[in-house]
Nucleic acid binder design. Structure first.
Lengths: 211, 211
DNA sequence: CTGCTTAGATTGACTGGTCAGTCAGCCGGG
DNA sequence: CCCGGCTGACTGACCAGTCAATCTAAGCAG
């Protein structure tokens, strides 16, 4: 691998693929569409990638590993579960805010397409769920979350709620103005954590007044 | 034995399609697979349906209209919001319990594929979200749910949480034994409604009583 | 009961179009 | 003049959808 020329065509192709996949969906996207959008020859796509699948692969893996890293990092921090979950939610929502097309592709074509393409990535996807479950389980151990809820299940609906939110924005089912992003995140975290909080705990208040 | 029990080939084809789509995914399913599974000739599929799409169409519409009906009916009942939402959740979970393949197809190929096939059905899908939002909004009006949460948003994450649960079962990410269905449903409804409840009950008090 | 007629159900070989992926060769810098 | 990035016409496979032919059953007259 000698070093790259001034213009990174590989990157150009990936960026083009994001927009093409977001616009038309993976299946309806031709490789020629990607090449056209990137302004390169058809064959060059196959110079850098083994197949059309591998392009999507790369897009997903790039971003998902960031998410996994973010969850892992936050989990190590000495903060409350609610803040941890809020940070995770913020990461996801901000990812959408800054790169809506990429997140749309990841959600629509991979995360929510576990039957076709996503099947390959189930282990990585699962890893995210597991880490969220761990955060919940730890909070139960510490007594901040009620213990009668399965952490694995809670993880599913926490993640599912957020993803559905992104879905709603992607398909314009709910208002997606700049102000809505943070507001929605706050609400979903507060609601779900509110539901998960241990009932009437006489220990030091976990919730820091953020108002 | 030329019996004449009106063997409904149309139904046979639809049922076959459920299993083929569930097994291979819509895109990877050939029309010939459906015909083979149904034990009929290739061409007969086109005698009863205009296209492969229309088969999926039919499967979705059939079931989704039941869901819409169920929500509508429960909304008219003089019961609390929590019970209403519980009934909705129960309908969805029971649908999965009794026809997992069909629900898998609907979720994977339509509901969560709003980019490709689901786009056609966005209005119907949206209708479900809207009706759930209405239940929440009414409860806020009545004072049982806190008013600072957007009903539209709450609807999204309520539905998203449940759908993610089904997803988890479909892809065996969480235990899906007979006992888990009701337990999961109870937990998700209790958690989310718990988070939505008006802070009249001393559950988790954010003591910031700003006037 | 039988033969004729017809309409709808059923069959499956075939067609037309679409693309993913290949490859033989072109350029431009070292 | 050599090499690796780069080009784009071409090919082989695949498959949704068509259609002409065949079958079945139902109605009806003789």
């Amino acid at each position: 691998m000698a070093k790259a020329p001034p213009v990174d065509k590989r990157r150009q192709i990936l960026d083009a693929a994001i927009h093409v996949f977001a616009r038309q969906g993976f299946h309806a996207s031709r490789v020629s569409d990607i090449a056209d959008e990137a302004g390169v020859a058809y064959g060059l796509v196959y110079h850098y990638f083994e197949s059309k699948d591998e392009v999507l692969n790369e897009l997903f893996t790039e971003r998902w590993s960031l998410l996994l890293g973010a969850i892992e990092e936050v989990d190590g921090q000495p903060i409350g579960a609610r803040e941890k979950l809020d940070t995770v939610a913020r990461f996801i929502v901000d990812s959408y805010r800054h790169e809506p097309d990429l997140m749309k592709v990841i959600i629509v074509e991979v995360t929510r397409a576990a039957n076709s393409f996503g099947r390959t990535h189930l282990p990585e996807i699962r890893r995210a769920y597991d880490m969220i479950a761990k955060i919940v389980a730890d909070a139960q151990q510490a007594g901040t979350f009620r213990k009668d809820v399965d952490p694995e299940f809670a993880s599913m609906w926490f993640y599912g709620a957020i993803e559905q939110l992104l879905s709603g924005w992607v398909f314009e089912l709910i208002p997606g103005g700049e102000a809505d992003f943070d507001r929605a995140r706050e609400m979903v975290v507060e609601t779900i954590c509110g539901g998960l909080d241990a009932p009437a705990t006489p220990r030091t208040r976990t919730a820091s007044g953020s108002s």
